[in-house]
Every structure is written in C-alpha cells, then in structure tokens.
Amino acid sequence: MSEVVLALQGVEKTYNRGKPNAVQVLQGVDLTVARGEVVALVAPSGAGKSTLLHIAGLLDTPDAGSVRIGGAEMVGLSDRRRTAVRRADVGFIYQFHHLLPEFSALENIVLPQLANGVPRDEARSCAYDLLTRVGIAARADHRPAALSGGEQQRVAFCRALANAPRLLLADEPTGNLDPATSDQVFGTLMELVRGTGLSALIATHNLDLAARMDRVLRLDKGHLAEGL
C-alpha cells in the first residue's frame, strides 16, 4: 500500500462564524494524496479550493477535522512548529509567480534554501540544476522583469522544489498564461513532479490539464467528490 503523504479527514471551515453572513466553505472534507500521486482539484470560483489548499499547506487552520502530513497530525501544533513543517515538507505554487523583483532567477531559488540552512554554494548548485531541468539555465542571471510569463512561472516551480518538499500544492499554476504557454509550462511542471517522485495537489479550472493527472477531485458546495 502506498504511503499517504497528505490526509485530511472531516475538515470543516466557516467564515464569519456566528454571524448572519456566515459561509460554510468546507463541510466534512476527506482527502488523501499518496506518495508520487498527482491529484487535480477542480472547483467553481469561490467554492473554497484556495481555502482547502491553505489548510493542507498549514497556512490556515480548520474549524474541525484532522490534517496529517507524512502521518503526523498538524492540527494543534504551535505556529513555530507549523512553520518548520511547512518550510521543510511543503512547496507552494500560485497563479502569479510572486518572484522577488530585485533578485535574479537563480537568487530567487537560492533564498528559500538559505532560509532553510543550506550552505550558499550548495544552494546555488541546486538552483542551477533546477533551472537546467526546466530549460532556462541561460536565464539564471536575469531578473523577473526580463523574463517572459512562462519563464517566470518556471522559476517559481524551481523555487517551490528547491528545499525538496514531500508535498507540492499549486493553485492555478498556469492560470495567468495564454493557452499555448500554459500547456508547455504545465508539461514542464509534470516532468519535474514525476522526476522527483513528489506528491502534488493541483487546483485548476482547465479540465484538459486535470485529465492529465492521476486523479480528479471536484469541490462544490463544501463537499469533495471523485471525478469531473
């Protein structure tokens, strides 16, 4: 039986609790992602997919339920411990790249490694290797403003993988790109994920991209179901 890297059980989340305008976004959500599995998360706008990803990635806490990463319970941990787990075990990719504009592509990948205690030379070597794998090593010294949208997102992918997380969470990672670039960049992401044996939960509106993943989960009205 495959190792379960991420497990959510009975997760609930309500905004404005106790108020007339309370909105229950997640209602008893159960979810598992196995080691090496790539799972698509599809949902209408406003259905709560970002909330679900933030809870899975320890950026938010559920009102009820269990969140386990690598078999360890995350609910109830101190902020310091949650931050440590997030830094070591979870990589994030967003629709917008959020690269630091004053630093080069290479430096944007080096910085999170330095924050994790990796020696600078080792961090630079890892960053260059990742840029090589996504085909833009020649752009290593360019700042984000000098890169195309697809190149910027490739750098963001490398940054998310720099600390060798066990779990990758992506929120519309190609949603800000034109269709042709989106398809190319998503292919790059899948090659990276497959090549590293990562587990990934990827939110997307693109059903064609979702169909290229191992499994599809649909979030609607606070409930999660298999398939489109």
Rank of each mutant, 00 (worst) to 15 (best):
A56H: 03
G135C: 11
N116A: 15
T132P: 02
V39Y: 05
L228M: 13
Y128G: 08
R17D: 11
P119R: 02
L114W: 03
A105M: 10
P165Y: 08
E151C: 14
P112A: 07
L106D: 10
V67Y: 06
N163I: 07
P101M: 12
D60G: 10
Y15W: 14
V42N: 11
P119Q: 01
L99F: 02
Q24K: 15
F92R: 00
R120Y: 04
T32G: 05
T83Q: 12
I55S: 07
F103I: 08
K13N: 12
Q153H: 03
T61R: 15
Q24V: 11
F103G: 00
G76C: 11
A137R: 09
A105K: 13
V39R: 01
T51R: 12
L177Y: 05
F103N: 04
G46N: 06
A123E: 01
V193A: 04
S104P: 12
G71F: 11
H97K: 05
R143A: 14
D89N: 04
A64Y: 08
T51F: 07
G187E: 01
V39K: 00
L131T: 08
E37T: 06
T61V: 14
L209I: 15
D89C: 00
D178Q: 00
V25E: 13
R215G: 08
P44H: 09
A127V: 06
L31S: 09
L77A: 09
A123H: 04
A180F: 01
A210S: 10
N16A: 14
I69Y: 13
N21Q: 12
R81A: 15
T32E: 15
E151K: 06
T188W: 03
N108M: 09
V155H: 05
L147C: 12
R17V: 14
T14G: 06
A22Y: 03
A170Q: 09
S182Y: 06
R218A: 11
R143K: 15
A160S: 15
A84H: 11
V75Y: 10
T32Y: 00
F96S: 02
I55A: 10
L201E: 05
V185Y: 01
N163L: 07
M213K: 00
L217C: 13
L26R: 05
R154W: 10
P179W: 05
G46E: 02
E226C: 08
V11Q: 05
R87H: 13
A72F: 10
A22I: 06
T51P: 09
L198W: 00
D141T: 12
K49R: 11
L228F: 08
T51C: 10
V67Q: 10
L31N: 04
L192Y: 03
V90N: 03
R86T: 07
P112N: 04
V118Y: 04
C126M: 10
L53P: 14
C126D: 08
T132I: 04
G48T: 10
A162M: 08
R124P: 04
R159Q: 09
E151A: 14
F103S: 05
C158F: 14
H54R: 15
G150W: 08
A200M: 02
